[in-house]
């Protein structure tokens, strides 16, 4: 099996040590880091995502693959930056102000990170202004917001409105989720997308960044 295929295969099986060793090997063999990322790691994660959606594997398997992905990314990131290869995309994520629920948001953050995106997790109880300032500072591509309470949902609209005021709207993608949130609500407040679970959030974020980008 070719080295990048081996990375993909072992990543699918959640073997973080093996993936790390193989990634190191690939770097030493001067395989371009962009190729290691796309043809090894992301290729593996795509299969994991597909299998998860089909119920062939379960969430723990996805998270183990994500952990292997993260380990390899730590090694690749400096090289990608050095070569000027854009990382897959940067996502600022958080539970909105006055909402202390972060279980769903944490899961989404783990899965998005596991798919090879850089994730800036702002935690919970995050004010609208903080989402905007963090997105600007980090040059983020996506803002992800979660709410579990109907009373805290209006913060999502506030973030969209602030993005408009700051001229970010349309440049930065805004994705929302959480139990009381719906596709209709997302459209109503002007967010780009709504996701109903973690795997769906990964798919949605991926749809913003074609792999060959």
């Amino acid at each position: 099996m070719e080295l990048l295929e081996q990375i993909s295969f072992n990543l699918q099986n959640g073997l973080d040590d093996v993936v790390a060793a193989l990634t190191k090997d690939a770097i030493e063999k001067r395989i371009p880091p962009g190729e290691i990322l796309s043809d090894g790691l992301i290729a593996g994660m795509s299969i994991v995502g597909e299998k998860f959606k089909n119920h062939d594997i379960f969430l723990p398997d996805v998270l183990l693959a994500a952990r292997a992905m993260n380990g390899a990314m730590e090694m690749l990131k400096p090289l990608l930056i050095k070569e000027g290869i854009p990382i897959r995309g940067k996502v600022v994520i958080g539970s909105v102000k006055d909402d202390l629920h972060d279980i769903g948001k944490n899961l989404v953050a783990i899965l998005i990170k596991g798919a090879g995106f850089e994730v800036i997790d702002l935690g919970n109880d995050v004010p609208a202004e903080k989402f905007i300032s963090a997105a600007k500072e980090e040059n983020a591509h996506v803002i992800g917001m979660s709410a579990l309470l109907t009373t805290t949902m209006p913060v999502m609209k506030k973030v969209v409105d602030l993005a408009k005021d700051e001229g970010l709207y349309g440049k930065i993608r805004i994705i929302v989720g959480g139990a009381p949130v719906s596709k209709e609500y997302a459209l109503e407040i002007g967010a780009d997308a709504y996701s109903y679970d973690g795997a769906n959030a990964v798919e949605t974020v991926e749809s913003f960044f074609p792999v060959n980008n």
Binding site: F58, L59, P60, L63, L64, I103, N106, L107
Partner: peptide, 15 residues
């Protein structure tokens, strides 16, 4: 860890 999704205990007994 804040969750047990990938804990050995979970992986061993989940299914």
């Amino acid at each position: 860890e804040k969750h047990l999704l990938i804990a050995n205990h979970t992986r061993k007994h989940l299914r």
